[in-house]
Nucleic acid binder design. Sequence first.
DNA 1: GAGACCATGTAATGTGTTACATGATTTT
DNA 2: AAAATCATGTAACACATTACATGGTCTC
Lengths: 186, 186
Amino acid sequence: MTGLSSVGKVILGALHGGPRSGYEIKRLVDHSTRLFWAASYGQIYPELRRLEAEGLVVGASEPRGGRARRVYRLTPAGADALTDWLTDDGMEHALRDEALLKLFFADALPPGGAVDVVRAMRKERETRLARLREIEAALPPGAGGFRVVVLRYGIEFHQWMVDWCRETERRCLDQAIGKAEKASAR
Amino acid sequence: MTGLSSVGKVILGALHGGPRSGYEIKRLVDHSTRLFWAASYGQIYPELRRLEAEGLVVGASEPRGGRARRVYRLTPAGADALTDWLTDDGMEHALRDEALLKLFFADALPPGGAVDVVRAMRKERETRLARLREIEAALPPGAGGFRVVVLRYGIEFHQWMVDWCRETERRCLDQAIGKAEKASAR
DNA sequence: GAGACCATGTAATGTGTTACATGATTTT
DNA sequence: AAAATCATGTAACACATTACATGGTCTC
C-alpha cells in the first residue's frame, strides 16, 4: 500500500506470468522491457526481499540440481497490488535523448555540422529497429497478446524516427543548397 | 578532456548562447530541453564549480541591484569541449514509459482493462502535445534554427503517439466485438 | 505587506549501474 | 578443459530529485 517502487512494478508484472527466480526476472526484463523499463541485479535482489517482507511475494528454495535457486511467486496481496498499479493513473514518461540535445545546440557547429548529428542519430535508430524486427520475425506465427502490441509500438516508433531523420537530413541539405545559390547569385 | 557529465553538456550548450547565471540555466532548461534532458539545481550549481575548476567556464560576480549573482561564460577550452562533444558519436537514448509497461502486463487485467490503459496514455500525451503547440504558437514569426526543429520533433512525436493510441484503442474494441460475436454465435 | 520571482547553495534521499565475489552446471 | 550460462548477492559509485535554508527585489 506504500506505492510500488519502479523495480517492484516489473517484478510483480513478471511474477504474474508464473513463479520466477531473480535471475529469470532479470533475463525477462533484458529480453523484453529493457528499452522502456530497465532493471539491474542490484535492484532486483534487494527488492524481492523487500516485497517478501511486505507480503506481496513469497520465496521458496527450489534448487536445480546442486545449484541453489530461490523462486518467488505472487501472493493474493501481491496480485492486488499489481492490479491497483495497472489501474491507477500514474503515467511516468521520461525521455533522455542525447541526439536531440546535440541538435538543439547545433547552431554552435559550423554549417553542415547538424546534418552529421541527424545522420548519426538515424544510424543508431536503424540499428535498433533492425534488432526489433529480428525479434518480431522470430515470433511464433499467430502470436498475440499485449506483449506483441508493445513490440510493434517499438518497431513503428523507431520507423517513425528513422523517417523523421531522413526528412530532416533532406531539409538541411536543401537549405544548404539554397544558401549556396543565394551566395553565387551575388 | 575527462568526458563531459550529463549536466555539463547542457551547461556548456546553454553558455554558448551567452553568459548566464546558474538560475538562468535552470530556467532555460525547464523551458526548453526538460522533456528530453532535465537538470536540477542540485546538479547545476556544483557542476558549474567543477567546470570552472577544469577551466571550461569562468564565473564573475555580477550583482543585479543588491542581489548577489554569479554569471558564467565559456572559455576557449570550454567552447572546444562543446564542439568535441557535439561531433563525437555518443548517442545515449533512454526511454522510460510507464504506460508501455502497464500495457505489456495488461493480460493481467480483466478484458477491457487494456483500453483504459491506452486511453489514459493518450490523455496524458494529448495534454503535453497541447502545451508544445502553445509554445510553437508563441514563437516569433519566421523563427528558425535548430531549437525550432527540435520543438517540431516533439510536436510530431507526440502527435504520432496520440494517433497510435487512437488506432490501438480502435483495435482493442474491434477485438472485443469480435469476441462477443463469436460468443453469441455459439 | 503579500506574493511572485530572482538568486545561491546544501543535505537528505532515492534511484540505478557496474564491478566484484562466489560457485555450480552445461555445452562445445 | 574452456567457455557459456545459471544463480545469488553486495559494495562502491554515479546520477538525480526534493526539500530546506536564506535573503533580496519587484509588482499589485
